[in-house]
């Protein structure tokens, strides 16, 4: 872990300490139900789950299963109809910088340079100028964009824009990293490079991560634990620990493919996915 990650903004730092000391899980959903259209559509049905510290938890499931809705509840961008979602024991009453989010759509501000984009979250939270500069430098290096610090987002490729989003989100010093299909808009080869970079970054920064993805391979490669969601009503069909990985994370994706147990896991998830979409047209 870099020394820089210790220098979070004062208020944020305090919240962080308090949160982790309380012994509460980073995120807890208790009997969460989310209904849309006055109850005619049940996106999430009575879900109770804890997200564990320093783990990467992947939410997967068929299209429309409510996995993104679940993530948005954790981000505080939406609220549950019933039940509660808490972060370190405190109910989530809206979005906040301690729960950083990376979206599928490109969210870099086009009018700011890459460096200014990365500094923006810190600026909002009142980091000192020197801290902003140092941390931006650190995180831009981490995503290999230090050479592009003075470019505008419009000049970058899709993969680079998502790297800006990741750097920006980490730079604001979140306790939790919420990733909503972050590589969903990228082409296959860039996705694969980004997945490897993500493993590297999460390992270095030791973050608690919740990842929404529709890509089974990506989920197995990145996650320590997979929550498989069913569709309408959205429930957790299975809570699967990636035991075959024995707590390791792999720097290269092909190292995972030859790991005993990988193929079984992939087959199991494909089978579950097929059961879910059987007879339904997505």
């Amino acid at each position: 872990m870099s020394i820089l990650t210790e220098h979070t903004g004062a208020a944020n730092h305090a919240a962080h300490e308090q949160g982790q000391a309380s012994g509460e899980p980073p995120l807890r959903a208790e009997r969460v139900t989310k209904e849309y259209l006055g109850g005619s559509r049940v996106a999430l049905d009575n879900i109770s789950i804890d997200i564990k510290e320093n783990q990467i938890t992947a939410l997967i499931g068929p299209s429309g299963c409510g996995k993104t809705t679940f993530l948005r509840l954790m981000a505080g961008l939406e609220y549950p109809t019933r039940g509660s979602v808490t972060a370190y024991g405190k109910p989530i009453m809206g979005p906040g910088p301690e729960r950083g989010m990376v979206f599928q759509a490109y969210t870099s501000f086009p009018w700011l340079t890459i460096r200014e984009n990365v500094q923006h979250g810190m600026k909002i939270q009142g980091f000192s100028k020197a801290e902003q500069r140092d941390r931006a430098e650190h995180f831009l290096k981490l995503v290999h964009l230090d050479e592009y610090a003075d470019a505008y987002p419009g000049e970058l490729s899709g993969g680079m824009k998502q790297r800006v989003a990741i750097a920006r989100t980490l730079a604001q010093g979140p306790e939790l990293l919420l990733l909503d299909e972050p590589f969903g808009a990228l082409d296959a080869q860039v996705t694969w490079e980004m997945e490897e970079m993500a493993v590297d970054i999460i390992e270095r920064e030791s973050k608690t991560v919740v990842l929404v993805t529709h890509d089974i391979q990506e989920a197995i490669y990145l996650a320590d634990r997979i929550l498989f969601f069913t569709r309408q009503p959205g429930r957790i069909k299975e809570d699967i620990a990636m035991e075959f990985k024995q707590g390791r994370r792999f720097a290269k994706k092909e190292e995972l493919l030859v790991e005993p147990g990988y193929v079984d896991m992939e087959k199991r998830l494909y089978t579950m996915m097929r059961e879910e979409i059987q007879g339904r047209i997505s």
Binding site: A75, G76, L77, G94, P95, G96, P97, R99, G100, M101, F103, A105, Y106, T107, F109, P110, W111, H120, G121, I124, Q125, A165, R168, T169, Q172, L178
Partner: peptide
Amino acid sequence: ELIESAQTMGASRWHIVFRVAFRS
């Protein structure tokens, strides 16, 4: 998403109105 990502950065309402929505 531009608005929402500003919210997850901890931006205030007025910050979003003038510094994100208007700027964008």
